[in-house]
Design a protein around this nucleic acid. Structure first.
Length: 864
RNA sequence: GCCCGGGUGGCGGAAUGGCAGACGCUGAGGACUUAAAAUCCUCCGGGGUUUUACCUCAUGGGGGUUCGAAUCCCCCCCCGGGCACCA
């Protein structure tokens, strides 16, 4: 049904019309026409020019995985409206576009189709670019970048070398997913059904340790956290919260527990945020991967059983999100450690809920004051001594230790995790938690078995990928000189053009002899190149700097140009990138600042995260198979209808449910506007713009002028501050309805008024439906393109209402309305309200308790 | 589990302490037309009444603050998203 309507109706005008009177709205024709004019006039090109106010608006660059879909289209439409409004406001606007062109999907597609990743990528880029042009987005295409080109990725390598020099890039062993049948490393997304290879669904993925490159994001952990304050109010709060959780700063202490019964064995160090609960520790619990575990088990009677559990634990990969819900499991090692505060002997266990990657890989279990410890200790029958109690107002019930009386043991629901007052804690009993923490950390430090320490959840960024389609890491390994950096003059290290891509065996570059075999830059002897490539998040961490100087072959960019354009005034993209991309970008910015390339701390002054486009309640994606092609849509309705609809259907930060039916409304509206202007264009073409005197206007004209300036005032606010494009469009629709409602105007109506009304209507639509607006602007007699026009100012006097309708309530219930002049005083409104028989009846004979009057808004009688 | 966002007519949504449902979609009826499309007009949350009008209920559920609550506070229910190596 919808299919028939949509495929036939919009075509109607295009099929019948020729240009001239009564031809109707033909988006296909006018969109091409104006796109060509914009390109010829180079309207969207801009240069750094410190004498002009700048505005840098940026949408996240797309991964070219297929064709342009509605999700892209919505993102870019929002950015384009902002760019066009800012241009109309007189800003020197930079609005660039590029391609996040490296990545695994290209490599997979290449293997599948027996082609080259570059071919697949460039074909997709060409398609998406054609789509973007089809929608008339106002990009400066001279600044286009593609991250898979050597002219771009050589600077990834250059930055990598700078980080290497400063110790910010280093190599260490790290775990990866390994498929024993493919003999290759798998990405997490290639691990399916909870731990199986995507190509061998009967084969369990193993965990392997290999040497990989890391960037030291942790060196900036504090700055990354602290500088979030600069972004408060201009970045979405949830992004700030997510990043801050991600960085996960945790202040606590490290404490060493000596072994109680193994002489000469090293101590076990734990990290705790609650050293004040140490008297309540009933066990030490180690991660399964803790190095000491095997040694501890030596000679233990339960060794065989313990090793079986250990093997099982090590095999099960633990996801962070499962930690809280999974069943706690563990086993006793047969060994004991010494509590350094109490001198008590406590058992050493291994537990599946302790992560090797966080803290020291060992914890002290304090079951009375930690939920997880409680669960674990309950399951295995370990004691649960209480050492902190809630602080009470009542200080009389304190025992001789100076602390409130307390239960000796925490039982079911007895876990108390908050701060309070220490009990049963030796000399610290009676102290408030914060005091106890400080004193105990100081004592531990003084005695040499611990110290206060801050740790972060944030880890260093592992950038090694055992893939072909990425930036080669510019180092070589020489038998004599070891690891040697490729000198700057030898950059870029180019990807070999014809790799063998099988998806099997070791990393593709390693099996490409012409790539991997090289000479050592130091000694000239034989050497092997690093065969891993960089994570594609490296590409996107600084691409927006490159736009400022896209073709520089001497440096990543000219700092002077970047100094003009940065920071980005408005960054727009999906919430999906709230953490990784945005955190890595912030990290890269700080590194560049410390390299002396830039002076700002944060790359983007404002961030906007738009909602996803959904169909059938789920986000549109290739994998879900519910993508709606943007070009198909433009083919049916034209770009402007598509742009308008995505703006109208939902506010930009919310998810948008795609509806084939609703878009008809946007199509109809644009036709309505077109017919309106077309009807009057001939008569208005020669009429001079401006110079309207409202005092001489007829009644209908005054109504129209008032409406158009009121609309302009509210639309301006929606564009500039609220970004409620959907309500802005609703207002413009109302205005259009009003103009139709006043047709025809009276005898003696002057064409200047009509022209002003239609011009303002056209200008308000221009950022959203630029092609149609240009066409209407031309029809109204303008020979200069609308792109030269400024955003109009509204007339204060006309935008003000001179008569308002005030609701009258009795006891908060609406009982009537009175019409008064704007700004009418309370006495006058009350008089008029009481003249209303209905209201008078409700009020008379009652005692007037009070009266609420809000000028121009409301009158409320409270009676008893 | 934790963190974040959300719940308003048949649907998308508007209203962020002051007239709930703007604007649009769908649907119904009508005009024009040989007919269809397009276009234009009217109606469209539930219930009631003395039906040009008015009353009443209604913004996931329950409680609270207030002259007044979709909006603020407390408790509960439901839905969506995120919780890092290959985008």
């Amino acid at each position: 049904m919808a299919e028939q309507n949509t495929s036939e109706n919009p075509q109607h005008g295009a099929q019948t019309g020729a240009t001239g009177t009564g031809s109707g709205y033909e988006p296909q024709k006018i969109e091409v026409k104006w796109q060509k004019r914009w390109a010829d006039a180079r309207v969207f090109e801009s240069e750094a020019d410190p004498s002009k106010p700048k505005y840098y608006v940026l949408e996240m660059l797309p991964y070219p995985s297929g064709t342009l879909h509605m999700g892209h289209m919505r993102n870019y439409t929002i950015g384009d409206v902002v760019a066009r409004v800012k241009r109309m406001r007189g800003f020197n606007v930079m609005h660039p576009m590029g391609w996040d062109a490296f990545g695994l999907p290209a490599e997979n597609a290449a293997i599948k189709n027996n082609t080259h990743p570059r071919e697949w990528t460039n074909k997709n880029i060409a398609e998406i670019k054609r789509g973007l042009r089809r929608f008339g987005f106002s990009y400066d295409w001279r600044r286009e970048i593609s991250t898979c080109e050597p002219e771009y990725y050589r600077w990834n390598q250059w930055f990598f070398l700078r980080m290497l020099e400063r110790g910010l890039a280093y190599r260490k062993k790290s775990r990866v997913n390994w498929c024993p049948k493919c003999c290759t490393v798998l990405a997490n997304e290639q691990v399916v059904n909870g731990g199986y290879c995507w190509r061998h669904e009967d084969t369990r993925v193993e965990s392997r340790e290999i040497k990989q490159w890391f960037l030291k994001t942790t060196a900036y952990a504090d700055q990354l956290l602290d500088d979030l304050k600069e972004l408060e109010g201009t970045w979405p709060e949830r992004v700030i919260v997510m990043q801050s959780n991600w960085i996960g700063k945790s202040q606590g202490a490290k404490v060493k527990f000596a072994m109680a019964d193994v002489t000469g064995a090293e101590a076990i160090e734990v990290f705790t945020t609650r050293i004040d609960t140490i008297y309540g520790a009933s066990a030490l619990i180690l991660a399964a991967g803790y190095p000491l575990v095997a040694k501890l088990l030596e000679g233990f009677a339960g060794k065989a059983e313990a090793e079986a559990s250990l093997a099982k634990m090590r095999q099960t990969s633990v996801k962070t999100e499962d930690l809280a819900t999974m069943e706690k499991e563990g086993f006793f090692t047969g060994r004991y450690a010494m509590n350094p505060f109490s001198g008590e002997k406590i058992p050493i266990w291994v537990g599946n809920f302790v992560l090797m990657e966080y803290g020291t890989g060992a914890i002290m279990a304090v079951p009375a004051h930690d939920e997880r410890d409680f669960e674990f200790c309950t399951k295995y029958g370990l004691p649960k001594p209480v050492v902190v109690v809630p602080q009470t107002q009542d200080s009389t019930s304190k025992n001789e230790g100076g602390a409130p009386a307390a239960p000796k043991t925490a039982e079911a629901d007895g876990v108390f995790t908050e701060f309070g007052v220490s009990v049963n804690s030796g000399p610290y009993s009676g102290m408030e938690s914060a005091t106890a923490i400080a004193k105990m950390a100081a004592f531990a430090e003084q005695k040499g078995f611990g110290r206060a320490e801050t740790i972060f959840r944030l880890k260093d960024w592992g950038i090694s990928r055992q893939r072909y389609w990425g930036t080669p890491i510019p180092v070589v390994y020489c038998e004599k000189d070891g690891m040697v950096a490729v000198p700057d003059k030898d950059l870029p290290v180019l990807l070999p053009p014809n790799p063998k891509l099988t998806g099997m065996g070791e990393s593709p570059l390693a099996s490409t002899p012409e790539f991997v075999n090289t000479t050592c830059p130091k000694c000239g002897g034989p050497a092997k190149r690093e065969a891993d490539t960089m994570d594609t998040f490296v590409d996107s961490s600084w691409y927006f700097y490159r736009y400022a100087d896209a073709h520089n072959d001497k440096a990543p960019y000219d700092s002077a140009k970047v100094a003009y354009w940065f920071p980005i005034d408005q960054y727009i993209g999906g919430i999906t990138h709230a953490i990784l991309h945005l955190l890595y970008s912030r990290f890269w910015c700080k590194v560049m600042r410390d390299l002396g390339l830039i002076t700002h701390n944060e790359p983007a002054a404002r961030l906007f995260t738009q909602g996803m486009v959904q169909k059938g309640g789920v986000t549109m994606s290739k994998s879900k198979g519910n993508l709606v092609g943007a070009e198909d849509m433009a083919q049916k309705y034209g770009a402007d209808t598509g742009r308008l609809y995505t703006l109208f259907a939902a506010p930009p930060e919310k998810d948008l449910e795609w509806s084939e039916e609703s878009i008809e409304g946007s199509w109809r509206f644009l036709n309505r506007v077109y017919r309106l202007v077309e009807r009057h264009a001939k008569a208005l073409r020669e009429v001079k713009s401006g110079g309207v005197d409202a005092a001489e206007a007829t009644a209908k004209e005054r109504t129209l002028l008032r409406k158009v300036h009121q609309t302009l005032r509210r639309v301006t606010i929606d564009f500039e501050t609220r970004w409620h494009f959907n309500s802005a469009i609703a207002l413009i629709m109302e205005l259009t309805n009003e103009i139709y409602a006043q047709e025809p105007l009276e005898e003696g109506a002057r064409p200047e008024v009509r022209k002003e009304v239609l011009e303002l209507l056209t200008l308000m639509l221009a950022p959203m439906t630029p092609h149609l607006s240009e066409e209407l602007w031309e029809m109204l007699g303008h020979t200069d393109g609308l792109w030269m026009a400024s955003w109009p100012a509204f007339d204060q006097d006309l935008a003000r209402d001179d008569e308002v309708e005030i609701p009258v309530q009795v006891n908060g219930r609406l009982r009537g309305r009175v019409k008064v002049a704007a700004g009418a005083g309370e006495e006058e409104v009350v008089k008029l309200a009481l003249a209303d028989t209905g209201i008078a009846a409700l009020v008379s004979g009652k005692r007037m308790v009070k009266r609420i009057f809000v000028p121009d808004r409301l009158l409320n009688f409270v009676v008893a």
